[in-house]
Design a protein around this nucleic acid. Sequence first.
DNA 1: ATCTAGTATTATGATTTTATTATATTATTC
DNA 2: GAATAATATAATAAAATCATAATACTAGAT
Lengths: 119, 119
Amino acid sequence: MNTSLDAVFSALADPTRRAILTMLLEDDMAVTDVAEPFEMSLAAISKHLGILTRAGLVNQEKRGRVKWCKLEPNALKETSVWMQSFGQFEPVNLEAFERFLENELGADPGPHEPHAARP
Amino acid sequence: MNTSLDAVFSALADPTRRAILTMLLEDDMAVTDVAEPFEMSLAAISKHLGILTRAGLVNQEKRGRVKWCKLEPNALKETSVWMQSFGQFEPVNLEAFERFLENELGADPGPHEPHAARP
DNA sequence: ATCTAGTATTATGATTTTATTATATTATTC
DNA sequence: GAATAATATAATAAAATCATAATACTAGAT
């Protein structure tokens, strides 16, 4: 309940974690499935999910031996209140957001564009 | 111009930096004046301001020997677009924000409540 | 009961962040 | 021009973060 700004903002500060949130935007997923598209180890992804969960951004529910991860959409409300104080934002149009997501997915170590290893 | 989400979110993840932004919400300030209410060294605050500036959240303009810091309200626009995708936020009412600010100022190592040194 | 899939935890190491003190730079003031 | 005010930078140290590999735990399958 007590979404601390510290926790939320630092959770959002990592591109891998933002990519995870973007994936969860489409559908709920098991930990293994979240990890699959990334180059990182599963352990790393599990920890990222822990951070997102502790920040209140994600909800994890264990069913059988698989843990389902889903977005907690209300979590960003409080944070959004804080942010809006620093500017007069017009209501957001979805088109701008779509363009933005494409950008984000291209730049991140995200699911759809596994980047080549560097020398 | 290129406000990177990484930079913006990690800038916002620090309570000292959020307190600085809150101070600048009231008025533009010189670096020394920003530092004054904090327990931290001026050098530390100078670096925090550098981080906020590199994230595009603050604008620093040198006039004479004093560097004036002011908010860059547009900087959070892009970030806000990203955030709004994860929830349906009603338009924010200022009352909620005021309550929130009080809370934030009480909890932070902020200007109005210098905390006692611990043993 | 044993094997395996799904996930978490521990130990470890590299990198980054945050703060401090000391020093340097630049612009005023006397 | 010397002293001082406003700020930045460098060197350094402690703490936090991020990733890995290895191990452990738990639930389902055989």
